[in-house]
Structure formats: C-alpha cells, structure tokens
C-alpha cells in the first residue's frame, strides 16, 4: 500500500498531466506517449533519489537530468527535435505549489516565510535549469567531438 501511494500514484499523475500538457502544445501521435513517459520517469527519479539525497533541490536536479537524457535519446531515435519532448516532460516538475505558497506568504505579510519560500522556489527552478543545461552542453560537446573526428 505504501509503495502504491508513495511511488505509483504520483508517477501516474505525472504521466497523465504530461500527457495533457502534450496535447495543449500540439504534440501528436506517438510523441504524446513519449512525453508522458518522460514526465513519469522524471518524477520516479525524483522519488527514488529521495532516500539518498534528502534534499528536494538535489532531487529536482536529478529528475531534470534524467528527463533531458531521455529526451535527447528519444530525439536521436526518432530523428525529431529534442525540444518538444524535453519541454513537455519537464512541465509537471515546475514548482507550481511553491510559487503559490510564496505568494500566499506575501499576502499574509509573513515576510520571513515569504523570503525563505521565494529562495526555495528559485532554488528548485535553478536546479531544473542546471540539469537541463548540463545535459544539453554535454550533448553539444559530444556531437562536435564526433563531427571533428
């Protein structure tokens, strides 16, 4: 039961919301499935790395790296631009909840809570950014190495 509620359900919801995002951004056919699997995979990585890292910022980084690698691999296999898959699969990771709580603290005038929540949200966004950045520059270096050799 605990495996079901802590792992299976969140991953399933990530899968379904990625699928819905894919439709909104007009991904078609098999692409919808690829994007949704990416979203699910990312969140699975986030959850599985929890006991090891114990910090949601580090976990978010791992998830972003996993999604980016997955998107690059899928794009190579299908000979399609990597962007679509990567962008859509990352959407469920976006810290929507933290943005909301930050705003709520601001409304309530809780300045300390507001600032720490703001910094935490920016940390999460930064972790996603660094994950995406790392993989895309590694791929860039790898492909220019191959085109020179």
């Amino acid at each position: 039961m605990s495996v079901f509620t802590t792992y299976f359900l969140p991953v399933l919801f990530a899968f379904l919301s990625s699928a819905a995002f894919a439709v909104i951004f007009n991904v078609r056919g098999l692409g919808v499935l690829i994007c949704s699997l990416g979203g699910a995979l990312g969140w699975l990585a986030y959850l599985l790395s929890a006991p090891l890292l114990q910090s949601d910022i580090a976990q978010m980084f791992v998830a972003a790296v996993v999604i980016s690698v997955y998107a690059e691999v899928m794009a190579r296999i299908r000979k399609y631009p990597v962007t679509g898959y990567q962008l859509v699969a990352i959407l469920p990771l976006v810290p929507g909840g933290n943005i909301y709580y930050t705003m709520e603290h601001a409304i309530n005038g809780e300045i300390d809570a507001f600032l720490s929540s703001l910094l935490h949200t920016m940390g999460l966004a930064g972790a996603i950014a660094v994950g995406v950045l790392l993989v895309s520059s590694a791929v860039r270096m790898w492909s220019s190495y191959h085109s020179h050799v």
Binding site: F25, I90, L91, P92, V94, I99, I128
Partner: peptide, 10 residues
C-alpha cells in the same frame, strides 16, 4: 499549472 511558465523557462 496550465499558466506556469515552465516552457519558456526551459
């Protein structure tokens, strides 16, 4: 969530 700028950020 449908409004959050995840896409333009990435």
């Amino acid at each position: 969530m449908a409004l959050v700028p995840g896409l333009s950020f990435t």
